[in-house]
Design a protein around this nucleic acid. Structure first.
Lengths: 97, 97
DNA sequence: TGAACATATGAACATCTGTTCATATGTATT
DNA sequence: AATACATATGAACAGATGTTCATATGTTCA
């Protein structure tokens, strides 16, 4: 495999992986592989408070790894694209060896 | 793609990605894609001091992402396996879109 | 053995990060 | 409009992280 990229790209890559480097965020992303979920649902599943989840979702949103949509009072988050899934599954593969 | 893993695995995955989430470390890894390199060579290429590089190499070594071998006074580091390359190139791909 | 060189290591420090708490914003219902 | 509910946000705090400095370790060669 041939790779070529400049230094700025590598900074961006580091930023990208930062999203996956925290257990809360990666567990959130993992939950979203299944289906879209509301903030409170995620909070409950991870047994964490709503604010913590909300803060992390904002980071993921800013990095364009998740999207959201409002339905009444509830906001549903979902994965932005397949890349996210691919990155996570590659990580899981690496760990399971 | 179907994924199934337990919570502990996700913690490990977060640990794995932590290695790629710092620009110094990812630039080190990127340099090692080419070929093995000594600590001082890496330090010079990244324009950083030897100690900083050495500390980061230790982290990468502990995570088994790099290996090293001694040749006289010099210690050469290289990527541990293709996974590392795969993860980086996937990150670059994602960023270049 | 002593000097020179390459790397590793521990302590100290500043910065970054994740969580909590309190509260604000936005929506639905009465 | 008032209340209840879901989410977002800012401040504060503790703990983690990355770099630097000083120095230790390990190797080679004279």
């Amino acid at each position: 495999m041939k790779i070529n990229c400049d230094e700025n790209t590598l900074y961006d890559v580091a930023e990208l992986f930062k999203n996956f480097s925290d257990s809360t965020r990666i567990r959130i992303l993992y939950l979203l592989i299944d289906k879209e979920r509301s903030v409170s649902e995620i909070a409950e599943l991870l047994n964490m408070n709503q604010s913590a989840i909300s803060h992390q979702l904002r980071l993921l949103k800013n990095s364009k790894l998740v999207r959201n949509r409002r339905e009444g009072k509830t906001i549903y988050y979902s994965l932005a694209d397949d890349h996210v899934l691919n990155i996570i599954s590659q990580g899981i593969e690496h760990v399971n060896e």
